[in-house]
Design a binder for these strands. Structure first.
Lengths: 111, 111
DNA sequence: TTACTATTTGGCAATATTGCCAAATAGTAA
DNA sequence: TTACTATTTGGCAATATTGCCAAATAGTAA
């Protein structure tokens, strides 16, 4: 695989990496219903404000969210809402894995 | 946020994390066209066989792929093909980010 | 058994991520 | 100016990820 192919894959991986954290998934799902400021998100998540701010900057650098300053607050909003479509498929993975587990358990019991 | 909500988010994050690596994205896209054995994938990717094997086990533990043994080979295949839908949206993020960059450059030039 | 191929696992060093505290920055209002 | 609120940034320790080499495992065939 050549350099060019790797950097295209790196660019995609960077975006998925930005999403691959529980707090950031929470934020993205919360922004589905509209913009939120850092303080409001911090209250919901229960991590330090600075930690939430850093998570938001990870999402921003990835291009998933943008922010709008108003007074002393920053309001973050989803830039590319199709990101929300991911979670349905993620649930499918979880369900399909649970099904497999159940089949294994059943096979054991039937012996 | 309570424990239960966190573990639901952790479960989702684990699946996105499994996808968030260039070599694993390559593998998932390659498996779109059908199962592949470790050796064939190693040849395409250019990493050590043991590294590719570990990447495959990450995808397998996440529930994204499964494997089928035949002789001394293991053939891996996609378990939940909706994962492939992610990449279209990931491209949208990349395009939307590029558009934003262009607008910034244009705004500078017009001064 | 031996020789061969394919894959997986153990271990480890290099690197990246996370979350906190403390401090810095910036806007508002008196 | 000072006091206040909201957010971001720097730094650091704890933890997780990655990729290699070497060794282990397992199937096939003589």
């Amino acid at each position: 695989m050549d350099e060019k192919q790797w950097s295209a894959l790196d660019a995609r991986a960077a975006i998925l990496k930005a999403l691959a954290h529980p707090a950031r998934i929470f934020i993205v799902e919360k922004l589905k219903d509209g913009e939120q400021c850092v303080n409001a998100l911090t209250g919901m998540i229960g991590l330090d404000t600075s930690t939430v701010s850093k998570h938001l900057s990870v999402l921003k650098n990835a291009g998933i969210v943008s922010d709008r300053k108003a007074g002393t607050s920053s309001y973050y909003f989803l830039r590319v809402p199709c990101i929300l479509d991911f979670f349905g498929c993620v649930e499918q993975v979880i369900i399909s894995r649970a099904d497999q587990q159940n089949r294994i358990v059943l096979a054991c019991k039937q012996r």
